[in-house]
Structures are given as C-alpha cells and as structure tokens.
Write a protein that binds this DNA or RNA. Structure first.
Length: 878
RNA sequence: GGGCGCUUAGCGCAGCUGGUUUAGAGCAUCUGCCCUACAAGCAGAGGGUCGGCGGUUCGAAUCCGUCAGCGCCCACCA
C-alpha cells in the first residue's frame, strides 16, 4: 500500500459496488422506514457548492439511518424549473436566430424537451461523484407522467373546493420574461434613485400648481387623479379642484383619502391605478378608470391614451420605460414643470429569475386562497410536531403564515404544467379572455369534448414542488397505495432557509391537505456557502469553485469532510480550500493508521499490563464517544459529531492508543490486543462512514473477509453494548487515571522539549507512587518510585502529585526557579480566589453543599500544590 | 417601519435550565523534530478582562435592562 491515500480509483470502484449490489435501493418491508426526498435541483443545472453542502448532509443522515437498521430511502429527482429553463431554451434558440414567438407552443416544447434530455440529469450524475446514496431506480422529474398527473389533479381538486380562482388583479409582472410572478419571486433591493417634483397646473387657479413628488415620472401618462389627505393643512386649497397632468394635458380631479401620509413629500400623490399596487386600491375605492400605458415588455404604449391628447404623447410611443423616464423629465424641465429633483433611497422590486425591474400590472391570473392553508400549516410547526433546526426559523415561518396572501400560480410560460382550464371557443371569441364568464370555464383533468380552447398559461414550478413528498410515491393519484403508506411522512428535509416560503411551508400545506399528515418530521436548514471573504458564491463573481474539480483534487470524502466540519445548522459557511485540505489530510491519516495496523505480525502471547490498560481505556472512551455522537446526531449537530470522531481518531486513537500498544520494531503484537484494535478501528470506520463513505467502505472490506455484497452501511451487529461498557467504569475513575497518566507523559515530553533532549535519549522519572508502565514506553524513561529527588531536577505537578525528572548537566537553576516562582504565584492567586468565596458567609450558607464542598477541595488541592512548589524552590536554592 | 438573530482567541465556532481547579476544541501562528504508519506528519507552546454600560445574585460568558455594531426576514409611504 502506498503511503498516500489515492481516492480516485477507490471512489469509482466503491460506488460501482454499491450500485451493483443495489445497496441504495429500498422497497417497503418490516423495518422502520427512513425517507428523505431530495430538494430537486434544476433539471438543467450543474452541481455547485450549495448542493455539495445540502446533499452531503442528506447522505450523512441516510447512511446513518441504514446503519441503525432502518430502511432508508433517499429519492432523487429534478425540477423542471419553469422560468429558468424556459429562459435558457429561449437563449439557445436566439443564438440560432429563432424567436420564441415565431414558434408554436408545440414546437417550442419540442425544443425544451430536447434541451432537457441533453442537459437533464447531469447534476444527478455529479451527485454520484459526491457519493450520494440515492435510490436511483426511483429517479423522478417534476414533469414526468406521475408528477404531472398529480399536479393537474390537485389543481382540479382545489378548484372544485373553491380554493383556486381566476381573477383580474394587480400582479408582479416580469417584463423580460413577460409573465406574472408570485410575491415571493420578487426581490426588493435598496436603490439610489431620484425623487422628481412635478408641477400640475391647477385648472381653477391659473398660474398655481399642485406639486407632486414621484419616483416614476414615466407613469404620468396613466395619471387619473391627484390624491391629498383631507386633513393636510397646506393642501386644503386644492380640495375639489382639478389639475393638468404635465406634458400630457389630461385634466384630472383632486381626490381626498387618508391613505396619503401627512408630511411626506408634498402631500400630493399622483394616482396611476394601472401601475401601482396602492394606486390600484385607490382606483377601486373611488371607481377611477385605469389607463395601462405599458406593453407587456414595459415599453410605452400610447395607444391607450385619449385621442385628443395623442399629439402631446405620441413621441414617447414604443420607448423603453427607463429611457422614457429621462425623456419626459427633460421635456418637462424645458416646460418649467419640474420644480426640483432630489436624491432618494427607495426599494425597487426585481424579478428573482430575470433580474428585471418588476412592473405592477393589472392582469388576469389564477390564484390559490392561502388562508385555508395557513390555518392548517401553522400549528404543527409552532408546537414542534414538525421540528425546525435551527428553531429560529419558526418565527420566520409564523410571520409569513400570519400575513399570508393569495398565491399567484399562473405563469405566461409554455414550459411547465399547462393549466387545465378550458374555454368555449365560440364564447371566447365573443368575450375575449378578460370578459369570459367564470362559470363557463371548465376545469378538468381531461379536455372536454367539443370546441374548447385550453388556458394558455402554465403553473408556477412550486405548484408541482409542493406535492413532491407525496407525488414521489404516487400518493396524489393513489392516496392509499402501499408505498405512500410506508414511506410517508418522510423523516428529514434538508434545505436552505431561502426557500422556506417557496417550498417548505407549501409542502406542509399540501401534506396536510392531501395526506392529512406532515410531509416530514424534521427540517434541517443549512446555511449559505460563502467564499472566505464572506461573499455569497455566484457565477458572476467567479468565486465559486467547481465541486468536481475539488473532488478530483481532494477526493469526495475530503470535500465532504471539509464542507461539513464547519457547518452547524443554519450557519453560513465561509468556504476555503483549506477545509478540503483538512479533509484530505484526515483521509490520509486513516489510511496510514490502517497501514500500520495491517503491517503488524501477531503472536499468541499474553497481553502485557500496558496493552490491557490501553485496551480497557480505549474501549471505555470509544463507548462513551459513541453515546455522545448519538446524542449530537439526534440534535442534528452534525459538525460537532464529526469533530468528536475526528478528535477521537487523530488524538486518542492515533496519537495515544496506537503508541501505547505499538510493538517494538520487528516484534509481534499480542493477538488479543490486535483483535481489540481491529474492533476499535472497525467501529470508528462505522462512525465515520456517513461522513466519508468511500474510504471507510474500502478499509472495512480490507480489515476482514467480507461476503460479496456486504457493506459497512449495514446495521450494527457487533457484540458491543456501549452502555454496558461504560458501566464498567461508572465513576470514570479509570478514564481519569489514564488522563492523569497522559499528563505525566506530557510533563516529561515538555521537559524534553524545553531542554532539547532527543526523544531517543532515555530519562528518569521520579514518581511518589507506582505509575503505569505505559509511561515508561511513551515517555521513554525509567521510573523510580518513591526516590528522593535530586536538587538538579525539573518537576511538574499532575493533580496534586509531584513528578520530577533529574537533569544533571541540563538543569538551569535560574530558569527552573523562575518557572516555579511563576507557578507559585498562579497557585496563590487561585487560592486567594477560592478563599474569598469560602470566607464569604453568604456563599457558604446559600450555595449548594456540593459546590461548597468542591471549593473546599480546590482549597485543599491548591494548598497542597503550593507546599510542593515551595519545597522544590527550597531544594533548588540549596 | 415591523420582526428575528448575532457579537467568546488571528479566523469561523461550541459553551443546554447561572457555580465542575478561575473560559473550550478545530484551523491558523510559533518552537523543535524526516523518530521505519502518516512532513497531507510527530512532539510541544503561545493566544481571549466572553461588544460597552448598568442591574439581579453569595456567585454571570450564561438571567434582566440599556447602548453600540453586524446580519437575516417581512412590509404598498408615493
């Protein structure tokens, strides 16, 4: 075996082994089910660091569940990602000189499917490189037949229940992709913009102006009124008057509403019902008409402006909204209708997908009534039927549900599930879409007979995602089938907090609506992977490493370990290659441990006293660590659990235990000790396996003969009961004894280091009581018990016991005295602190007796130590 | 504007209902070592008045208040 672990070949071989033996495949049986559904990545996406974090955590949970004897089933799949994919397909077609709207829906979908098949599933292949133990036989897609049927069925069902409706509403409109968005798809960002103060001439008082402050002067073409607060003093004179929209010439009334905030801006608000959510509300309240001045791609459309005003506005026709903003301001300036322009900070809504500025737009869309769902989904999370890790997200969740708004689920896209609503063709021709009567719409899973036209829209991607934990097991079409009954509810959901509303909350809603049960019992929210400067990783910054390159460099286990080591639930990770390096180094450590052990010859001799101590000690320590890891894992503290095993392996096992039992060069090791060592090694491999699957499976097959198809993922059947083992040393006295012994060894090594004495050179240790022969072995010294220490000795204290090492020519009395003096001061200061407590009557009276007792012991020990140090000082001074 | 959370060694963190030899690991740093498992390593070491101030208490990193800084989520002040 090479002295360096080489992951590439082993990873490929081990993964194939798992696949060949169908070790990830699950079918219902008598065992407890442990189900995880993957947050489906975009079908055409590629693996990034966020996935690495997310999927690694899921794999850890799933593999561990298998080891616990559960029937683990991790279902993979991909999401059709309606907007994102459609955009990519459009982009590719544009490159070929083809425009989407030159194609029929069918032609476009053909291209989209081609693209999906070409790029789809790349990410799933990449997950295999990472070691993900998904049940690939179950791979699903949100637009495959089963999932699509579920979506359509649910739509129809909710429509029947009156929970889905069609309505003309102000929605968030993405002018780039020309579709409606849900509120959640709009990202509000702070913006440095301008506040324009425009003069609206008052008709009744020529020469006087109402000044309106706006951030969007380009919308004045749609102004229908100017609103003031009836209580605002300075604007009283405007009551009942009319003003002229500057540059447009439209005469509009002054209206009054308390919505206008007194003291803000000029107190005059321009009302543009077609292009602002609030203005729309005002328009409704006062029955104002709307003039929509934008095309779907947010260019100016002057055709909607009154004919008599066309001459004034025609020049703006067809302009982009932002170009128009500049143009109209310039023109108004020329007419002296701009009073001033101020810098202004405000929030602007951007489309999550296209990054275009969202335009509020009046449009006919499909919505879900969300209050019903909020009602069924709030309780289970608040009372921890579904547990969030970390729990702080409960607040976020509650906040959203308590202020729920209806969900706009229709998109003006082709790639997605087409809305199963049908319109009578003749009637539609008569009424148009807007005026088509609701009661003449047929919502049905299959197209009705006759001359009907299907709704042009597709559904929001999340409308299929919210069914994922159910639809993966065909639980919508067949709510009582064996699989859904066995695998649902799933165990853990691992995802980012950024999709708590998009996905997590809605899955809970759908879960209760369609299965009457929670979709998962635990939700583990990961943090965001950032670069080491704390910046979010993004393609545009180019600060996101390619996980596959990292896997090549550090091995999948190394990358997994790196990303997990510093990833407490909900905390962001500052990614640094150094993390993967640490992971790789650890793999190497394990590898070399194995080489060492494997290289030993065994002999059927009696175990030495030292061996027996070492074995007993490590047995206790391992059992104790196993329990601690169980506890940490049950609290989803994965990085802490991992760190605990890491330390157990590197510090306790490699640095201490192996050195304790290591036979002299060329000598054999006692068979019994060897067997115990292999057991320890195997148990640690098992503990490590969920985190680093490849190397552990490989070595597991190397430490013993295994049947073909056997795996480290199998349930633990070793004769090993941690609780019973720990009970052998109920008060931890033996463990403490070894810890003290390690300190003695460190003490000697310390002296060596400070005196530059080579490890090879044997030293003498004077101890007041018998010490383990392991001290002799690990500190390379002879031990003299109870011997008077010579003046030229360096000493150290473990607990209250003094040990000394004669140094003869190496001693530096001044240095030694200085050290002792410093130690003495430290101890005296400590004692003083303890005494202060003990002399405080209120402490002695009020504190718990065991606390007082402890302080007394501290006092006693400190006094003991002080005495010892003083004696040493005296001896040295002689 | 509302809500939530954070502030502990150079860095990113742990420290649960206050008391466990006067704050813990990891990484990084420093010193010495190629000692026949591993230099992707070994043996040692240094480093923090627990954001500031006030309070409760015999006792506070831990509880309460307040101030400051940071972050996240939600929200229609044009």
């Amino acid at each position: 075996m090479e002295s360096k672990y080489n992951p590439t070949e082993i990873e490929a071989r081990r993964y194939q082994y798992w696949l060949d033996h169908k070790l990830f495949h699950s079918t219902p049986d008598g065992r407890e089910a442990f189900t995880v559904v993957i947050p489906p990545p975009n079908v055409t996406g590629v693996l990034h660091m966020g996935h690495v974090l997310n999927e690694t955590i899921q794999d850890v949970l799933v593999r561990r569940a298998r080891q616990q004897g559960k029937n683990a089933c991790w279902v993979p799949g991909t999401d059709h990602a309606s907007i994102a994919t459609e955009a990519k397909v459009i982009g590719r077609l544009e490159e070929q000189g083809i425009h989407k709207h030159d194609l029929t829906r069918e032609e476009f979908l053909k291209h989209a499917w081609d693209w999906t098949e070409e790029h789809g599933g790349i990410i799933l292949k990449q997950l295999r490189k990472l070691g993900c133990s998904c049940d690939w036989d179950r791979t699903a897609f949100t637009m495959d037949e089963t999932r699509s049927k579920a979506v359509i069925k649910v739509f129809c069902d909710l429509y029947k229940k009156g929970l889905i409706y069609r309505g003309l509403r102000m929605v968030n409109w993405d002018p780039k992709f020309q579709t409606a968005l849900s509120d959640e798809e709009v990202i509000h960002q702070d913006e440095h913009s301008k506040f324009y103060y425009l003069r609206y001439q008052v008709v009744e008082e020529p020469g006087k102006y109402a000044v309106v402050a706006t951030t969007r002067p380009e919308t004045i073409f749609g102004d229908i009124a100017v609103c003031i607060n009836p209580k605002e003093e300075k604007n009283q004179w405007l009551k009942g008057k009319h003003v002229v929209v500057p540059g447009v010439g439209r005469v509009i009334p002054i209206i009054e509403d308390r919505y206008v905030e007194i003291g803000f801006g000029t107190g005059c608000l321009k009302v543009t019902p077609a292009h602002d959510m609030n203005d729309y509300a005002l328009g409704q309240k006062y029955n104002l008409k709307t003039i929509d001045i934008f095309t779907p791609d947010a260019h100016l459309n002057m055709d909607t402006v009154e004919e008599e005003l066309q001459a004034n506005v025609r020049k703006y026709h067809g302009m982009d909204r932002f170009d128009c903003r500049k143009a109209i301001v310039e023109d108004l300036k020329a007419m002296d209708l701009v009073e001033k322009i101020e810098d202004y900070e405000n929030k602007v809504g951007y489309s999550q997908r296209s990054n275009a500025v969202v335009e509020p737009r009046l449009s006919l869309q499909w919505f879900i009534r969300m209050q019903h769902f909020a009602d069924i989904a709030l309780g289970p999370v608040m009372n921890d039927d579904i547990v969030f890790y970390p729990s702080k997200y409960k607040n976020t969740y509650r906040n959203w549900l308590e202020n729920i708004k209806d969900w706009c689920i229709s998109r003006q896209l082709w790639w997605g599930h087409r809305i199963p609503a049908y319109y009578d063709a003749d009637l539609l021709a008569e009424t148009g879409w807007d005026k088509y009567p609701d009661d003449k719409i047929i919502v049905s899973e299959t197209a009705p007979e006759g001359n009907y036209v299907q709704d042009e829209g597709a559904l929001d991607t999340w409308f299929s995602s919210w069914l994922w934990p159910i639809s993966l097991f065909d639980g919508i079409e067949h709510p009582d089938n064996d699989e859904i009954k066995y695998y649902y509810p799933t165990a853990d959901l691992v995802t980012g907090p950024d999709i708590i509303f998009f996905w997590v909350a809605r899955m809970i809603m759908a879960g209760y609506e369609y299965q009457g049960k929670m979709p998962f019992k635990h939700v583990y929210f990961t943090g965001i992977v950032r670069d080491k400067l704390g910046r979010k990783m993004s393609k545009s910054l180019g600060n996101s490493p390619d996980p596959l390159v990292l896997i090549d460099q550090y091995g999948a286990d190394g990358v997994r370990l790196g990303i997990l080591l510093s990833a407490p639930a909900g905390n962001d990770i500052l990614y640094d290659d150094a993390l993967c390096e640490q992971g790789r180094n650890f793999c190497n450590k394990i590898w070399n441990c194995f080489r060492l052990i494997k290289g030993w010859e065994t002999a059927d001799t009696e175990a030495s006293m030292g061996d027996r101590e070492a074995v007993t000690w490590f047995t206790l320590l391992l059992a104790k660590t196993e329990k601690e890891i169980d506890d940490l894992m049950s609290k989803y503290r994965l990085s802490e659990a991992l760190m605990l095993i890491y330390k157990l392996f590197t510090d306790e096992f490699s640095s201490w235990y192996l050195e304790m039992i290591k036979p002299a060069y060329g000598q054999p090791i006692c068979q019994k000790t060897y067997d115990s060592t292999l057991i320890f090694f195997e148990r640690m491999l098992r503990l490590l396996h969920p985190f680093m699957p490849f190397i552990t499976e490989e070595l597991w097959h190397n430490i013993a003969e295994r049947e073909d198809g056997a795996t480290i993922m199998s349930a633990d059947t070793m004769d090993w009961n941690a609780d019973e083992l720990i009970a052998m040393d109920p008060k931890g006295e033996f463990l403490q004894k070894i810890e003290d012994m390690k300190q003695v060894i460190t003490g000697v090594r310390n002296i060596r280091a400070s005196k530059n004495i080579a490890p090879k050179e044997q030293m003498t240790l004077i101890a007041p009581v018998e010490v383990s022969e392991l001290v002799r072995k690990l500190a390379n010294c002879t031990i003299e018990v109870g011997k008077e220490k010579p003046a030229t000795a360096a000493s150290f204290i473990v607990g209250t016991t003094e040990y000394s090492v004669p140094l003869d020519q190496f001693i530096n009395v001044d240095e030694e005295l200085q050290k002792l003096q410093a130690d003495l001061e430290h101890q005296e200061k400590f004692l003083k602190g303890v005494m202060a407590k003990l002399q405080n009557e209120r402490f002695v009276q009020n504190a718990k007796p065991e606390i007082v007792e402890l302080e007394r012991k501290k006092q006693h020990d400190a006094e003991q130590r002080i005495k010892t140090i003083q004696e040493s000082i005296a001896a040295l001074k002689k």
